[in-house]
Design a protein around this nucleic acid. Structure first.
Lengths: 196, 196
DNA sequence: TCCGCAACCTATCGCTGATAGTCTATCAAT
DNA sequence: ATTGATAGACTATCAGCGATAGGTTGCGGA
């Protein structure tokens, strides 16, 4: 009981740090938030963070995981009764909506430069990203029988919608066309190959 | 004469700083390079940089301009005798090649967060970016008569190829398909709408 | 009762971008 | 030829950053 409480307290503080870090990151952007700000928001001293995380990057990795999980959840909410190309299009719309509505989360997921683990060549945030991507991959398995072709299609479409979200987020000052028209035109173009 | 010499000397030092900064940025990435490293490479003290640039961001803006100019030059080298969809495809290939061969330049151009000017809502790097994009826009004016539709198509294709380059650069650890296959599949998909 | 450990603290490190204040060499005007 | 202004460089220094060292406290188990 007491042991469990102690363990729980540690977990809670870790989660509390991540909650505050996420809140600050979403509000001010990844690079702008300092460890001292996070610590102050939690109500502990700045060095105390290092009892829970190896370094600032480790916090960023956890937030990267959260961001990909939120993306996966958003994609998971897409109407499961849809099939084929219709489902792919709705997944793309959900993806773009997530990116534009949660720009800070999207940037943590895709633009933050986070060191990968030396042996695995990955970090846990990337694993979460792959699992989010799998939703799109499986939707394409429904459309294209050849699995290699389905994989290529899914990666291409992913890159395509990522490009739109990415450039809208990082260079919003460019003279883009009307957002709805641009999204529609982009999806029409990107998914034209899957027309029946 | 003497005045001109003095003016020239200033310009040279500015250019020298930018040259060294570019060399360091390309080698070590944007965030990794410090003002002291730049100053040391030039052979002056770190505060002396601030006689030539308002701050570190101002140097980044100039390098952003250079990156876009290099991209524009690369696109300008595409065979001018090509027309229509063939020209668009070659432009896309050149774009992707530039991004993958000059990752640091591409990141400065598209991923570096550089404050925009308050009144104009832009910075000069963005203007250079727009002029690079214009090459693709004009190629689409050749294919699609309706100028609004041509603009939408060009922006969509730009976003599409940017997405592939961007994700390959920022998340190379993802299990992507073979690069040549992926690029081919992506361009096939992205440009399918322009088939005659 | 005492031990060990987890979590916290203060103090401090080296490094960063940026500013203040001074010195010097060059050029234009007297 | 002498003066005054200016450009460009310097040293010294700042506050803020991520991170580390070392000591203190309080609680659960032997």
């Amino acid at each position: 009981m007491a042991t469990k409480d102690a363990g729980k307290r540690v977990t809670d503080r870790r989660e509390q740090i991540l909650d505050e870090a996420q809140r600050l990151f979403l509000g001010h952007g990844l690079e702008a938030v300092t460890t001292r700000q996070i610590a102050q928001a939690v109500g502990i001293s700045q060095p105390s963070l290092y009892a829970h995380f190896a370094n600032r990057d480790a916090i960023a990795v956890e937030l990267c995981i959260r961001a990909f999980q939120q993306l996966a959840q958003r994609l998971g909410e897409v109407d499961a009764s849809l099939t084929g190309a219709n489902r792919v299009r709705e997944l793309c719309l959900a993806y773009i909506a997530f990116g534009l509505e949660q720009p800070a989360a999207y940037r943590v997921a895709f633009h933050a430069d986070i060191a990968v683990d030396d042996e695995s060549g990955m970090h846990r945030g990337l694993e979460a990203g792959i699992s989010a991507f799998s939703i799109l991959r499986e939707a394409y398995a429904d459309i294209i029988a050849d699995s290699a072709r389905a994989e290529l299609a899914a990666q291409s479409v992913w890159a395509g919608i990522h490009g739109l979200v990415s450039i809208l987020l990082t260079r919003p000052e460019f003279p883009f066309a009307d957002l709805r028209q641009l999204v529609d035109a982009h999806l029409d173009r990107l998914l034209a190959a899957d027309r029946i």
